[in-house]
């Protein structure tokens, strides 16, 4: 049964997937080199959209460094967290030493993360878990990834209400955007190089159609286009 709402909620991922397919399809199917580069760009763009999508986190907050870290790292720590940001709220429930450490040891110290733990308890969070990572609703982007924290049950239920509220807060993680800016630079550079090459190829061959290029190369090498002269060449 198709859950239309489920699909509709994830429209941005569908755009990403469709664009990606279109891009790859163009690369595969078009013989014209410039068209290939166009396809490549579409493909890359789809990835940008994906990154931007995952930058939007429901229930997340700007990372605030825990005291323990702060004491050790002073200002640096704060800067660091700002740089890398807080994407999905604390999936690392199991890894105590990380910044995203689950709060089971000291829930009251990290309210933000408590929220995350609480979210993990919600039925929606548990539902799609394990079967639709890519299709996760934006609001629950992180949820399917969460294993229910073992020891945090009590604290979570105590804070259940707050968690529900917090889940509706949409937080924009800047890091993916930063990443994607870098990727865009790379993409533009690639496109430029590709187009420049296309120009040079046209100068050298007089065409930018793939079939013709291959035929030209084969004729230069074997005296015939591919497949026409498999017999003669062996002798």
């Amino acid at each position: 049964m198709i859950d239309l709402a489920f699909i509709a909620e994830r429209y941005n991922y569908w755009i990403f997937i469709v664009l990606m397919m279109i891009g790859v399809y163009i690369v595969i199917s078009r013989g014209n080199l410039v068209k290939k580069i166009v396809g490549l760009n579409i493909f890359q763009t789809s990835v940008f959209i994906y990154y931007i999508s995952i930058g939007k986190v429901a229930g997340g907050t700007a990372p605030i460094l825990p005291a323990a870290y702060e004491s050790g790292h002073e200002g640096k720590g704060a800067r660091a967290s700002a740089a890398h940001g807080e994407s999905a709220p604390a999936p690392g429930a199991a890894s105590g030493e990380s910044l995203h450490a689950a709060p089971q040891s000291a829930p009251e110290a990290l309210p933000a993360n408590d929220l995350a733990s609480a979210v993990a308890q919600t039925p929606q969070g548990a539902g799609p878990s394990g079967e639709a990572g890519l299709h996760a609703a934006p609001g629950e982007a992180a949820n399917p990834l969460l294993a229910p924290p073992d020891g945090a049950g009590d604290a979570a239920s105590a804070l259940g209400e707050a968690a529900h509220k917090a889940a509706e807060i949409v937080y924009s993680n800047p890091l993916p955007h930063v990443l994607i800016l870098t990727a865009i630079v790379v993409g533009v550079a690639t496109t430029a190089v590709g187009l420049a090459l296309a120009v040079r190829i046209r100068e050298a061959y007089g065409t930018i159609e793939e079939d013709e290029l291959e035929a030209a190369d084969d004729i230069a090498e074997f005296g015939a286009a591919f497949g026409e002269k498999a017999e003669g060449a062996r002798a």
């Binding site: 690369v27 290939k36 793939e210 291959e214 090498e221 591919f226 498999a230 060449a233």
Partner: peptide
């Protein structure tokens, strides 16, 4: 072989 299918390198697609 050089003209064999597996040695064909051109088609990007």
């Amino acid at each position: 072989g050089p003209e064999g299918r597996l040695a064909r390198t051109w088609p990007v697609g």
